[in-house]
Design a protein around this nucleic acid. Structure first.
Lengths: 204, 204
DNA sequence: AGCGGACTGGACTGGCCGGTCCAGTGTGTG
DNA sequence: CACACACTGGACCGGCCAGTCCAGTCCGCT
């Protein structure tokens, strides 16, 4: 059974409120550190509302995984448009690093954190997270492909591989940032990824 | 209060057995998915033994984090010795990829997984994991430094930055591998890191 | 042998947690 | 306006879980 889709505006709002409450609690305390009573309290909802909109706890967590994917990828939408220039890539990388500074290097990447907690426990959640990573990597790849189409990368360059390595650098850099409480870990990892992209530029 | 150090050989063995049982359960079910009763059963120990050797649940999990660090870093000791040659680096990278194949791309990196579950909850555990990552990165850096000392890297090369980026590639690659259930994600990320090292070789 | 501390077994407790249930109240439609 | 159904409140239950407690047993040492 999957989550019941609300039939009214009010229902949709309640469902959203539950997911947002659950997502914020999960970000603070982790998946298993979040009880349905906690969610119920923060969402100002009752137990039966939770079970009206979600089949069970796992179903709710799947919705949280999807919401986290949407937030992370959606939050970068404006920056994604400019990933077809070196300046745009730098601006995007800088935004990620700045965000880690404002967060005091805490929390890491919501997708990455959830991956460690859900990937081995719930196949549906794993697929939601994989979808988020795919959308993220696609945005990077498409930026590089637009550069290639304009002849700004040399013919042998592989936008797919560069995008995949860049995403790996983001995730790895964020993990090191989180464990070491040092945003420079992400900056350095992104510098490395940037170098690979710069090396793929066409000699003009 | 920290864990009581056993005074006898028998005590040391019991303590070890508990940590191993806890570590394997945590690897299977996650930190909060593992109850002390589970640990007690798998370790063939009693509740009072758990509380004799560990102050509380968090203290045990800190010991698990340390054991995971030791296992991951210790398990690569033989490969670390040869990180001062391109062949040695390739062998090390290949071993990591092969391990993911044999594990069917499941589980990710024990240190990385625990990071997502413990880093924000328990400062002591975070420090144990940071220590594991430091030892790992140091091994890579020292290999590159030996290459540099032999004049095989060009003078501008930065072994510290290369080692840090390589570790980020490993962690990011493992996360992508785990979420996508595809060991090639790690292989590709390591290829990227390798390229950066190859580009830093002295022109001979 | 016998002392003291390290070590062990396992019953017990109070609280929390996922999930159920039912008696309602709102609300859009015919 | 009335009917059906979406939605809501909250009491309740059985099970699990971290942590406590005490009555022991083992073991090194003198």
């Amino acid at each position: 059974m999957t989550s019941a889709q609300p039939a009214t505006a009010k229902g949709r709002e309640t469902r959203e409120r539950i997911i947002r409450a659950a997502a914020s609690l999960v970000a603070e305390r982790g998946v298993l550190g979040t009880s349905l009573d906690d969610v119920r309290a923060r969402a100002h909802a009752s137990k039966s509302q939770l079970y009206h909109y979600f089949a069970d706890r796992d179903d709710l967590m799947r919705a949280v995984a999807r919401a986290a994917s949407d937030d992370v990828v959606g939050g970068q939408a404006g920056l994604f448009e400019r990933l077809d220039t070196i300046d745009g890539l730098r601006a995007w990388a800088q935004a990620l690093v700045t965000l880690q500074h404002t967060r005091n290097a805490k929390g890491g990447c919501p997708i990455g954190s959830l991956a460690g907690q859900l990937a081995e426990q719930d196949e549906g959640a794993r697929l939601e997270l994989a979808d988020g990573l795919d959308r993220w990597e696609t945005a990077i790849r498409q930026g590089l492909e637009r550069m290639a189409a304009r002849g700004e990368l040399h013919p042998g360059a592989d936008p797919s591989a560069l995008a995949q390595n860049t995403l790996a650098a983001v995730q790895g850099g964020l993990l090191l940032t989180q464990v070491r409480r040092d945003p420079n870990q992400l900056r350095s990892a992104l510098n490395g990824a940037m170098k690979a992209i710069l090396a793929a530029r066409a000699v003009s």
